[in-house]
Measured scan of single mutants.
Amino acid sequence: MPGGGPEMDDYMETLKDEEDALWENVECNRHMLSRYINPAKLTPYLRQCKVIDEQDEDEVLNAPMLPSKINRAGRLLDILHTKGQRGYVVFLESLEFYYPELYKLVTGKEPTRRFSTIVVEEGHEGLTHFLMNEVIKLQQQMKAKDLQRCELLARLRQLEDEKKQMTLTRVELLTFQERYYKMKEERDSYNDELVKVKDDNYNLAMRYAQLSEEKNMAVMRSRDLQLEIDQLKHRLNKMEEECKLERNQSLKLKNDIENRPKKEQVLELERENEMLKTKNQELQSIIQAGKRSLPDSDKAILDILEHDRKEALEDRQELVNRIYNLQEEARQAEELRDKYLEEKEDLELKCSTLGKDCEMYKHRMNTVMLQLEEVERERDQAFHSRDEAQTQYSQCLIEKDKYRKQIRELEEKNDEMRIEMVRREACIVNLESKLRRLSKDSNNLDQSLPRNLPVTIISQDFGDASPRTNGQEADDSSTSEESPEDSKYFLPYHPPQRRMNLKGIQLQRAKS
Rank of each mutant, 00 (worst) to 15 (best):
H124P: 11
I70T: 05
G123E: 15
G5S: 14
F97L: 06
L127Q: 07
G87I: 00
D9T: 15
M8S: 14
P6C: 11
Q48F: 02
E18H: 12
Q141I: 14
R75W: 05
I37N: 01
I37R: 00
Y98M: 09
N38H: 09
E121M: 05
E93G: 08
D9C: 10
Q85L: 08
P39W: 01
D10T: 13
K145Q: 11
Q48G: 06
L127D: 06
H81K: 08
G126C: 14
V106Q: 14
L127G: 09
F97Y: 12
D9S: 10
P6M: 10
D9V: 11
I79R: 03
Q55K: 03
L92S: 14
K69V: 03
L22Y: 11
D146H: 08
T128H: 13
D20N: 12
L80C: 05
L42P: 04
H129R: 11
D146V: 13
K145N: 09
E110L: 08
P111R: 07
P111D: 02
E57I: 02
S116Y: 05
Q139G: 15
Y11M: 11
T43C: 03
L138R: 07
T112K: 15
E13D: 14
L77V: 07
F130T: 15
T128W: 11
T128C: 04
G84P: 04
T14M: 10
P100K: 07
G126I: 13
F91M: 07
E13Q: 10
M8D: 10
G84T: 02
E59Q: 00
G126Y: 13
V51S: 02
K109Q: 07
M8E: 13
C28H: 08
A40E: 03
T43E: 01
L46H: 03
L42N: 02
L66N: 00
E7P: 10
L46P: 02
P44Q: 08
V135Y: 14
M8F: 08
I79C: 03
Y45N: 01
L76W: 01
M12A: 13
R47T: 03
E24V: 11
G4I: 12
V119L: 08
N38G: 02
K69E: 00
P6Q: 13
A21Y: 08
I37V: 06
Y45K: 02
W23G: 08
P67Q: 09
N38W: 06
Q141M: 09
H31C: 13
G5K: 13
I118C: 15
M12W: 08
L42G: 07
S94Y: 02
H124Y: 06
E13A: 11
T14Y: 11
L42M: 07
D56T: 02
K16A: 11
L61Q: 06
T14K: 12
F115M: 15
K145G: 09
L33V: 13
K41M: 05
A63K: 01
F91T: 06
M132E: 04
T82G: 12
D78Q: 05
A144Y: 11
C49L: 07
I52R: 02
S94A: 05
P39Y: 02
H31V: 14
L66W: 00
Q139C: 15
D20F: 09
E134V: 15
E54P: 05
K109S: 10
T14H: 14
